[in-house]
């Protein structure tokens, strides 16, 4: 991959949310390149800032509750400098979004065909009839049986899997070059999840679209993504190719996440547990390695004072030096008294 293939370049992006009259960064000076025709997964636990990242690219945040700085280069322009009207020309046409819950993501009072067409109304000069024709084509494309019939159905008349196909159809209606998929399979049953994964991969191959896949599920990442960026407490801690990452994760957080999953290999054994909880935005310690408080028995000398994301092998980036000294212990730690972890509700 060369620099010419970069589709989206996020540079020093900081997104802060207002909590009690103060702004706290949910994304803290992050950088990421998204290449053409790739699926890059943003992975982390709830509250790590991965959804905020997707919303920042689309300019979806509430303006008064959010502060954004940095640059988001996309096709020769900085999206962050765009006005809302300018962004409306990008949203849906160049970049679109797939949401987690297909039931709530669709307007219950509008037939699905109209919801698919709506974007075309603002982004193309197609006539009403042409739009309908195109919508039916897209329904076909996302493999909906009897597209003409489904066109005039309401969301509640469709099953969960069908609804998610509609949400995908809306996202691809204007053939965008980037799709941000925010937990696209989390609300679905496993067999449907498998089919939606296959569908997204196929669409990506055929339409040459790039996808930013936001998820907490490493299984989905493994099935779908080319590259992975692991996010912890508002920062990327590790970025690399999925294949290499899954065989050899480096950052302590990445390792811990992977080993906490039940799999064929650790059957009957205790699962790895990360001590403590994800810190909330307004109680996060922002100096030094943010993962330090959750590592067992490590001394401060292994961490950098101001950790940076460093390329340790080609295309594989890791934050902080502590990864060199971290081993997953096979024996699981007994759940201990958690005095300090009482979570201050956000």
């Amino acid at each position: 991959m060369s620099n010419d293939d970069i589709l989206l370049q996020v540079e020093d992006l900081t997104t802060s949310f207002r909590i009690d009259e103060q702004f706290y960064p949910a994304n803290d000076h992050i950088n990421l390149d998204v290449y053409e025709n790739e699926i890059v997964a943003i992975v982390g636990e709830s509250g790590c800032g991965k959804s905020a990242f997707g919303h920042s690219i689309m300019g979806m945040h509430h303006q008064e509750q959010t502060k954004i700085s940095g640059k988001i280069h996309f096709k020769g322009a900085d999206l962050l400098s765009y006005s809302n009207t300018q962004l409306n020309k990008v949203r849906g046409k160049e970049i679109s979004m797939i949401f987690q819950d297909p039931l709530t993501a669709l307007n219950p009072l509008m037939i699905v065909g109209k919801q698919i067409e709506e974007g075309m109304k603002y982004h193309t000069k197609l006539s009403k009839n042409k739009r309908k024709q195109k919508a039916i084509e897209i329904l076909n494309e996302v493999k909906i049986p009897q597209p003409e019939r489904v066109y005039s159905q309401y969301p509640h008349e469709l099953s969960g899997g069908m609804r998610q196909r509609i949400v995908i159809a809306i996202a691809i209606a204007c053939e965008p070059s980037l799709i941000i998929a925010d937990e696209p399979t989390t609300a679905l049953d496993v067999t449907i999840q498998a089919r939606i994964i296959d569908l997204l991969k196929e669409l990506k191959r055929r339409m040459k679209t790039s996808i930013i896949l936001i998820t907490h599920d490493l299984g989905v990442v493994s099935e779908m993504a080319d590259r992975i960026a692991v996010m912890y407490a508002g920062e990327f801690v590790e970025i690399g190719e999925v294949k290499r990452f899954l065989k050899n994760p480096l950052h302590p957080y990445s390792k811990s996440l992977l080993y906490s999953l039940p799999s064929k290999n650790n059957q009957g054994e205790k699962l790895h547990v990360i001590k403590g909880v994800v810190p909330s935005l307004n109680h996060l310690q922002r100096q030094g390695c943010r993962f330090k408080p959750r590592m067992n028995g490590t001394d401060d000398s292994i961490h950098e004072e101001t950790p940076t994301l460093r390329e340790v092998e080609k295309g594989h980036w890791v934050r902080c030096t502590c990864y060199k000294h971290f081993q997953i212990e096979n024996s699981h730690q007994v759940v201990e008294e958690e005095k300090d972890d009482v979570f201050q509700g956000q």
Partner: peptide, 15 residues
């Protein structure tokens, strides 16, 4: 629950 928390609860249920 998130993956790491999930592991905690599963271990604990076994205990």
């Amino acid at each position: 629950l998130d993956a790491s928390v999930q592991a905690q609860v599963l271990n604990f249920m076994q205990d």
